[in-house]
Design a protein around this nucleic acid. Structure first.
Lengths: 160, 160
DNA sequence: TAAAAGTGTACTGAATTAGTACCGTTTTAG
DNA sequence: CTAAAACGGTACTAATTCAGTACACTTTTA
């Protein structure tokens, strides 16, 4: 199982909750915690990370709160996950940082690892926050080898 | 960062090491450990899991060892990862098992989570072991929104 | 100016994972 | 027929990572 941390999952829930409301509306950490049934400190922590990632805008003060930094269809899953978990990669060796893996000098598949990570990222970049909040269809396409390849399609008709 | 366990990474190295040799050749856990610079107990553990996943065939006895259960181009990354880490999913809620997540009854994006997992799986099913052991090209395609979408292409001309 | 809301850091307990050890089973060479 | 080499399974321990929390600070507005 390729795992996404629980916190990242919560983060997706939070983002989609904000995205579901009118773009001008401000959401306090407290309100979001109640609406999403999550503990306030956790929500607060996540909103901070999403802010630093440039996905949310914040407004301080007594009438403050958070709003989306961009329109939902311009925020990809890849960005959200990156903001919450750090650089999107399958293994440590596929990041830019060298020397993390003992096998690195002799690793026979190092180069391909990087490419695989990019394929994965490509898949996640295709899905946006606006896809997450509206009904999605799963369309299966048969590739040249006859395998079923699942792909998303929003009801709006957005395709790839 | 979407993380794959270190062990799974080792597993990919092991599988590609076996795949690089003639299909009839048997590989002992000891030999693979030396060739891949990994501790023997770890290698042994991984080979067992890959066997149970149906990706390797084993031969006992003094002249025993492991070989691939199928040709490299019929073994997908998705299968290898599933064998080593369990069902391929982004979050617990996207698996078949219900009731793991407190938010489940009220989770607004539960259904879409499942679909996202399937998209990801689709991407990993497209890459096979044979792709892993030969030079791969990364080809970028622009989708309808003008974004670059990375995709793999083996030098053999295999495409999707 | 006080209250409400965001900002940042640091700590602790829990859960997961990696790594190891041990003992059993199968096969084959001599 | 038996000893050695290799696979097969389980269970345990240490290390790492992650989730969750607490606390002190800054900003804004009624």
């Amino acid at each position: 199982m390729i795992r996404l941390g629980k916190l990242t999952d919560y983060g997706l829930v939070l983002m989609s909750q904000v995205a579901r409301r009118p773009p001008t509306e401000l959401h306090t950490a407290r309100d979001l915690a109640v609406e999403c049934h999550l503990p306030l400190p956790t929500v607060s922590k996540l909103l901070k990370r999403l802010l630093r990632g440039g996905l949310l805008a914040s407004h301080r003060g007594i009438k403050g709160g958070y709003s989306l930094a961009r329109e939902p269809h311009l925020i990809s899953l890849a960005e959200i996950i990156t903001a919450l978990e750090g650089p999107l990669a399958l293994t440590e060796c596929s990041t830019e940082i060298e020397g993390l893996c003992d096998l690195e000098p002799s690793c026979p598949i190092k180069n391909n690892q990087r490419i695989i990570s990019q394929v994965l990222r490509g898949a996640l970049e295709k899905v946006t926050l606006s896809d997450l909040i509206r009904p999605m269809r799963l369309i299966a396409i048969r590739d040249h080898r006859g395998n079923l390849v699942p792909t998303v399609s929003a009801t709006s008709g957005r395709m790839q």
